[in-house]
């Protein structure tokens, strides 16, 4: 099997680490070779962050390059636009519609582009956009945005829901599992 590529993009501090850990666990449990690559340090201080998840029979490079991503899972809509050049020709963007102003926008040095979902679609990308923050709040915590997104992503995989939930249970502390299951279901069944 050809190596498949999932990029998780967002803003430092949004919880992308759990998403990549869960995907890694899930894909390994399905017998794939898996590589997950993340960047720590300076880029975490509210900056743009990216995690690469690659799986297949044998994965060589730990990173995803321009035009290679089968999926871009985005925690914030501007970040989906930033990483669009990495999307494969027939790739899919699964994105939160939440908007978080970067510092150059806050200070007025730059402008946050409008109508990004429409523009991403017009670029030829398949775009699945949903308000994950509202759904996460419905599930019980604004911090569950990551699990809502994973629920939505699961929709595109030919894997039973129980397999995803098993990985969720392996990654999340027991006291938060019900909340996260609810968030996952809200994302998956949108």
């Amino acid at each position: 099997m050809e190596t498949k590529n999932i990029m998780i993009v967002g803003v430092g501090g949004q919880g992308s680490l759990l998403a990549s850990k869960l995907l890694g666990h899930l894909l390994l449990s399905q017998g794939y070779d898996v590589k997950v690559s993340e960047v720590h340090g300076m880029s975490q201080r509210g900056g743009s962050v990216v995690t690469y998840v690659r799986y297949g029979d044998q994965v060589a490079s730990p990173v995803i390059d321009l035009g290679e991503a089968d999926f871009i899972v985005s925690f914030e809509i501007l970040e989906a636009a930033r990483w669009l050049p990495y999307l494969k020709k027939d790739g899919t963007i699964v994105t939160n519609t939440q908007q978080m102003d970067p510092m150059p926008v806050i200070t007025g040095a730059a402008v946050y582009p409008e109508n990004l979902v429409e523009k991403l679609k017009a670029s030829g990308a398949k775009v699945d956009a949903l308000d994950c923050l509202t759904l996460a709040e419905q599930a019980g915590s604004s911090k569950a945005v990551n699990v809502v997104l994973l629920g939505r992503l699961s929709h595109y995989f030919d894997l039973p829901e129980e397999t995803w939930l098993a990985s969720l249970e392996a990654m999340v502390p027991p006291k938060f599992i019900e909340l996260n299951k609810k968030a996952f279901a809200l994302g998956r069944n949108q």
Binding site: V11, G12, M42, S43, Q44, R45, G46, G47, S48, D65, L66, G67, E68, L78, E79, A81, R82, L84, P85, Y86, L87, K88, K89, P102, M103, P104, V105, A110, V111, Y112, P113, L116, K119, L120, S123, G124, A125
Partner: peptide, 20 residues
């Protein structure tokens, strides 16, 4: 060969790290 790529026409504002 390398894969095809695409981008939006809009300028994407940078998101540099900031003091929390």
């Amino acid at each position: 060969p390398v894969p095809e790529t695409r981008k939006l026409e809009d300028a994407i504002p940078p998101r540099p790290p900031v003091m929390c």
